[in-house]
Design a protein around this nucleic acid. Structure first.
Lengths: 198, 198
DNA sequence: TATGTTGTTTACCAATCGGTAAAATTATGT
DNA sequence: ACATAATTTTACCGATTGGTAAACAACATA
């Protein structure tokens, strides 16, 4: 019932998200957020309260929006969907290295802050649940038809762990051939879960 | 042929290493390094040149000293050695959470800096080589006696990827039961490599 | 003992950090 | 039209950041 915002909050958050995602929290200054959003610092602070608040909202956005893009091909693809996810991962590293280097916003934040901030720990929990959930729901289809060797939970966990390992390795600047090798192994592991329907 | 140092450089590096290891690079100020080492900033700078230089030396120290402690039990333990490594990992998380939260200095640095600094990328390469080397040399014994299902390189790679995934998860503050579950899965995977000697 | 060389101490610096106070502006409810 | 309540703008702040200049102290050599 007063003057309305002139900018779209969601758009701003999206830009802030990408900024934190590519440079990390500590390494991005308010000035960077200003140029990423095109908004003066006072506007950012009046909308989000603090730099930490901006990170929280950025991660929430990542968790409810960006992550869907990443896992879109997995959700109902069965074992093949999971394997294809890792194939796509390798492909992105090869074709869009600057994108791949960004890794995952949540993983990056987890490592920057550790468990020092409960707000982040809780979001990290949600993240892991989301990732494993994607793998789980993909595997459940094959499991229901008796084509999965092993139980869904454990295999989804394993896929999750391997993905985290890959994120770290890519961020660390490992050579392309090494990434390809590791992805190949992950794919082999995933495909070894396939068994003749009985 | 002049005034000698009054402090032990290696000792200082060890303290600096632990400081960076537990708090990260950006989050530790020169003041933290002063109190960690007991040395005034000017002494640190005259010895190491810059904060980045201190990180480089810290990682070198980590790579040639701290890491040996971590992997000491793996090196010639065969498949069981690798499995025990993951068992010990779970045990440390349970019994020394503050230690476990530190994760790995190189992993943490990789994620903080990405591939932006060649000095770090090169050290990350050495790190991965060291980790895989530990797993490889452990597995080679069993492989030579025909007790390993699969080739040494790939399985060492897989162990490496799983370990990285665990580091990330622990740093992210995952609940103990989750860590235990993931470690259990890693152990199962490793033990599944064992095959009757022929 | 004089000198050159290095390490130590003290005090300091410019720059950047995240954050904010207050005035100016603009839509809304009455 | 007017008061109200919110946003935008501008300018600013204290604290901290990584880093250093210069005076002083100790050792080796000549």
């Amino acid at each position: 019932m007063a003057r309305p915002r002139e900018f779209d909050t969601k758009e701003a958050i999206a830009s802030i998200c990408d900024q934190f995602w590519s440079d990390g929290y500590e390494a991005t200054g308010i000035a960077d957020l200003e140029s990423a959003t095109g908004l003066a610092r006072a506007r950012l602070y009046s909308a989000f309260g603090s730099k930490q608040g901006m990170l929280y909202e950025a991660i929430d956005f990542y968790l409810e929006s960006r992550i869907n893009v990443i896992f879109s091909r997995v959700d109902d693809g069965g074992i093949a969907g999971v394997a294809n996810f890792f194939r796509t991962f390798a492909q992105i590293v090869a074709e869009h290295p600057e994108r791949a280097e960004m890794g995952c916003l949540v993983v990056n934040s987890m490592i920057e802050f550790g468990r020092s901030e409960p707000e982040l720990v809780e979001r990290a929990d949600r993240y892991r649940e989301r990732v494993r959930g994607a793998f789980r729901s993909a595997l459940e289809r094959d499991a229901a038809e008796g084509r999965l060797a092993g139980n869904v939970e454990s295999l989804a966990d394993l896929a999750y762990v391997m993905l985290m390992g890959l994120y770290v390795t890519v961020k660390g600047g490992a050579p392309l051939e090494e990434i390809n090798r590791l992805c190949g192994i992950a794919i082999e592991v995933v495909e070894s879960w396939q068994v003749e329907a009985r």
